[in-house]
């Protein structure tokens, strides 16, 4: 890590007309943003949008996906629909999001919602479909009512796969928020990057924004990953 920073510094120094600002300039940029309070404001704005879009998608997509997986018929009916929507990049929805919701938080949240909804529902659907029959049969054998089977067998059985899905999707949501903020709003880390460029080619601020995006993305991933170590979930990650 340190070696990479040094390499970056040296590489930039060696060039008369550097393609990138050096690490010191970027650190300076970060400092400037932090002092002015913009950094915190933009990070909070981006996280706010991701949280809402992602949470709404999870709250809707997971129960829906679980239900579809449970009643395979519905899955079959909806599958062509999902297959057509899936290859459309969420970014392709940006104009429509702006048309519907105007420039602002709602448009960005809508885009994140869209980007998260399909992967989450597909994950939930597949997770249910792949529960071994023995677990469901054992649940029924002990006299569980259908609602108890859902809470005591289905739900714990899908958790490991669901968490992988949440992790991947949160990564996607974080990619999408940056893109959405470049066009659909005027705050957030994505906006910071476009704005820094437009307002006087402040590439030190551009790279500072990129660094923040990377760091926060990593922290989000670590956060979801820590769920994988809960004992009642981690069974799905061993080779048992």
């Amino acid at each position: 890590m340190l070696a990479l920073l040094v390499l970056w510094h040296v590489a930039v120094r060696l060039q008369a007309n550097p393609l990138l600002p050096g690490p010191l300039a970027v650190a300076g940029g970060l400092w400037e943003l932090a002092v002015s309070g913009l950094l915190l404001r933009y990070v909070v704005a981006s996280l706010f949008r991701v949280t809402w879009g992602f949470l709404l998608a999870a709250l809707l997509a997971i129960p829906l996906g679980l239900a579809f997986g449970w009643y395979r018929r519905m899955e079959l009916a909806f599958n062509p629909f999902i297959q057509i929507l899936r290859p459309i990049s969420p970014l392709a929805w940006i104009p429509i999001a702006i048309l519907w919701f105007g420039v602002g938080d709602v448009a960005a949240i809508f885009l994140i919602f869209l980007a998260s909804f399909l992967p989450l529902s597909v994950t939930a659907m597949n997770a249910v479909a792949s529960i071994p029959d023995v677990y469901l049969n054992a649940g029924r054998n002990f006299g569980l009512r259908p609602s108890q089977v859902v809470f005591r067998v289905l739900y714990p059985a899908v958790m490991p796969q669901l968490i992988i899905g949440l992790r991947i999707t949160l990564g996607i949501a974080w990619l999408v928020v940056v893109a959405a903020e470049m066009m659909a709003v005027n705050s957030g880390l994505g906006f910071l990057i476009v704005d820094a460029r437009n307002a006087g080619n402040r590439y030190d601020l551009v790279v500072a924004g990129m660094v923040m995006i990377g760091v926060i993305g990593l922290l989000l991933d670590i956060g979801v990953r820590s769920l994988e170590r809960i004992p009642s979930i981690s069974w799905g990650y061993s080779d048992d």
């Binding site: 071994p132 023995v134 677990y135 049969n137 054992a138 029924r140 054998n141 002990f142 006299g143 067998v153 714990p156 059985a157 958790m159 009642s232 979930i233 069974w235 799905g236 048992d240």
Partner: peptide, 18 residues
């Protein structure tokens, strides 16, 4: 199925999350 008659499965039927 009925809980008065319990099946012990050929494939492993213990719940890995418990």
């Amino acid at each position: 199925p009925d809980r008065r008659r319990v099946f012990v499965f050929q494939e492993r039927g213990v719940f890995p999350w418990l």
